[in-house]
Design a protein around this nucleic acid. Sequence first.
DNA 1: AGCACGCCGACT
DNA 2: GTCGGCGTGCTC
Length: 729
Amino acid sequence: MYIVKVLVEHAIYKLDTTYDYLSKYQVLAGCRVHIRFGYQQLVGYVVECQETLFTQKQLEEKNGFKYSFIQDVIDQKPLLNQELQELANYLSKQTLSTRISCLQCMLPPQLKPSTNHSVGIKYQKVVSFVKDIPLKTTKQQEALNYIKEHDLLPIKDYPFSTALLNNIEKQGAIIYKQVEVYRNPYNEHLQQEDYPLTTSQQKVVNQILASFHQFKTFLLYGVTGSGKTEVYLHLSRFVIEQGKTVLMLVPEIALTPMMVSAFKSRFGKSVAILHSKLSAGERYDEYRRIIDDEVKIVVGARSAVFAPLENIGLIIMDEEHDASYKQESPPRYLTSQVARKRGAYHQCPVVLGSATPSLESYSRALKGAYELCILSQRVNQKPLPQIELIDMVEEMKAHHYEVLSRKMKAKIQETIDKNEQVILLLNKRGYSSYVRCLDCDEVLKCPHCDVSLTYHKDTHTMRCHYCDFQVPYQQKCSHCGSTNIKLIGSGTQKIEEYLQNNFINSRVIRYDVDSTRKKQGHHQLLKQFENQEANILIGTQMIAKGLDFENVTFVGVINADLSLNIPDFRANERTFQLLEQVSGRSGRGKKQGTVMIQTYNPDHFVLQCVKNHDYQSFYQKEMEMRKLAKYPPYCYLISILVQGKKEDDVTFCSQQIKEYLVKQLPKAIVLGPANCTIYKMNDIYRKRMTLKITNTTHVYEVLHAMSDYYNKKGRKVNVICDFNPYTTI
DNA sequence: AGCACGCCGACT
DNA sequence: GTCGGCGTGCTC
């Protein structure tokens, strides 16, 4: 008989221990099993299996609890190989998350140790009309009529509150249904030859290949348009020819279409694509192809770092500084850390590429922990685009109060008159429209979260971006009843309207979360823009990355300051990266590109560095500030979020935690507890502390103890630790 | 997490 | 008197 140690599927701290089951046959570690767990029927993950000579009865007497048998074994062979099993353990320790959550995030939906197999398949709640019945209020009747005309729309897209819909549902006039959200992966690709490399590209390739069979981290710092992709392709070609495999990581979706086609067109079927927008089925197919050894290159977003490739010869992380490489839900891992761990295991080079490296990486490169490779020129020898800062204070003085300055307006018209294209970046944070009453000054807020509701023109509703609460837009103040209401701020939708009204021959494409949600979203809109069906592309951060349109000669940034003023230690860095990246979209073809940036602080060093394309100065200045304020790369950060339903409990416990931390970690600096920017979210109060440490020795024990204590059921608050948080607000 | 058990308030 | 509210405890 065998004793099988099993982790159960629920990813909570309290259940992060193994439970012993019995089995007549041996079960390999890494297989899933069906088990009874109390009154529940669950899926478990086997971590160990030992033979025993005791009988069930003897064991029960010896250990004082009941044993039950495993019901059946789901997998014939382990889901993860040795390397990845060890990686899961490493990850759970590093990120203070449950072991099962690490295993879940490494596997595609169908293979996750979880009862609910639809996890990962994206479902959407839609409203379905049932019958006409007399309803209690005219409002409900109105809503029902609307639903009748727009049957089967996602619940979010109706201009009525969920409360109202729920009410109608209770009365039986409509029902909710779950519908799978499906997207097609990109497919049609022509076979293409590699381009010859420039001498500087070749130099970089040689530099990296010199340590082809050893673990070493390279930082490839190449200005926008310097042809990093071509370097990746050549490196990959070499590595596959040596019989090894390549792991290529890219930021979330925005960049994927172009990078994907670059790899697919060169390497065809031996490329597998992994990213979150694939349907569960597609993802599973790609995963199988990797396991079955049909694949030499995996291109994917963050979670692809766990791709079950064997014999990896090269790991590339493009746009290394990108925020999407940090997972913001458990396990809150840093992709670069996992990538380097795998690089060490496989003894292969890890290449981090960026035009605007993170300060952490660049300082490591300067210290020699990483090897620095530089591409300082654009491939076509074109100079980087000319950047002009436009002082919006001057505009105000000249009594010009429109969103676009006179200069930028003229430049846009000039560009589209020449049949060239324009990209406009709206730095969106805090820039969406909300409703304010001019009489009592009341702002319409979400009842569950501490944020104002945002106006959505298409559905004529006010929505919360955090909990999806929505109400129809009303010309009346909910507080004082006044009809003197004003919509404030300009989101992308409003700017889109402005552009259409103010420019002759403008054809505008809006590229933001709302417009890309539908169908093939991204791909389709970008295709339209590429085919010159539109001449102005307006969007938020999403447009800053990886887009490569030859005919774009002008890039405008509407408000550069908003992200500078966010009270986060990375605000400068992020602003620099964003502006530098978006500038790089201009003048990629044969024609010279220009950029205009509207700002209220034209003298700010970040903007000056952007203007001069001067990463070095930016790096120096920002490092000085980090050193003074003691922020990374001069220390490690750990963010501790305390949340609970009652405000008093949160206040009390966070103070208690602070005292504990100060006592246990005398060398650490503990900032806070402070209210989170969104103090109340989904009816839960949140406070945050930030821990600064220079040495990680005792930290894990201390934090584990704290997390064990608070993350039990029945505690008044719970605590989330985040090692190396990306943001501290 | 999910389920049972158990102890208190407002109802036929 | 009982139905059902959710606090507490347990699952190999």
